[in-house]
Simulated scan of single mutants.
Amino acid sequence: MRTEAEAAGPPLEPVSSEHKPFPPPRDLKHRSWESGQASCRLILLYLGQVDDSEFESALQALRLTRSIWTIDLAYLMRHFGVRHRFCTQTLGVDKGYKNQSFYRKHFDTEETRVNQLFAQAKACKVLVEKCTVSVQDIQAHLAQGHVAIVLVNSGVLHCDLCSSPIKYCCFAPRGHRCFCRTPDYQGHFIVLRGYNRAAGCIFYNNPAYADRMCSTSVSNFEEARTSYGTDEDILFVYLDS
Rank of each mutant, 00 (worst) to 15 (best):
M1F: 12
A5S: 14
L12R: 08
S16G: 09
E18W: 01
E18H: 10
E18K: 05
K20F: 04
K20P: 00
R26V: 11
L28N: 09
W33R: 13
W33P: 01
S39F: 00
L45K: 13
L47Q: 12
V50G: 07
F55Q: 04
A61C: 11
L64H: 14
T65I: 07
T65P: 09
S67K: 12
W69R: 00
L76P: 04
L76V: 07
G81V: 04
H84L: 06
H84Y: 01
H84M: 11
F86A: 08
T88V: 11
K95D: 15
Q100R: 14
V114P: 02
V114G: 00
E129D: 15
C131L: 12
Q144H: 05
L151P: 10
S154Y: 10
G155L: 01
V156M: 07
L157Q: 10
T182A: 05
P183K: 10
Y185P: 00
Q186D: 03
F189W: 01
I190E: 01
I190T: 12
I190D: 06
A199K: 15
Y204F: 12
Y209A: 05
R212G: 00
C214R: 00
S217V: 07
S217R: 06
S219Q: 14
F221L: 05
A224C: 03
S227K: 06
E232I: 10
V237C: 05
L239Y: 04
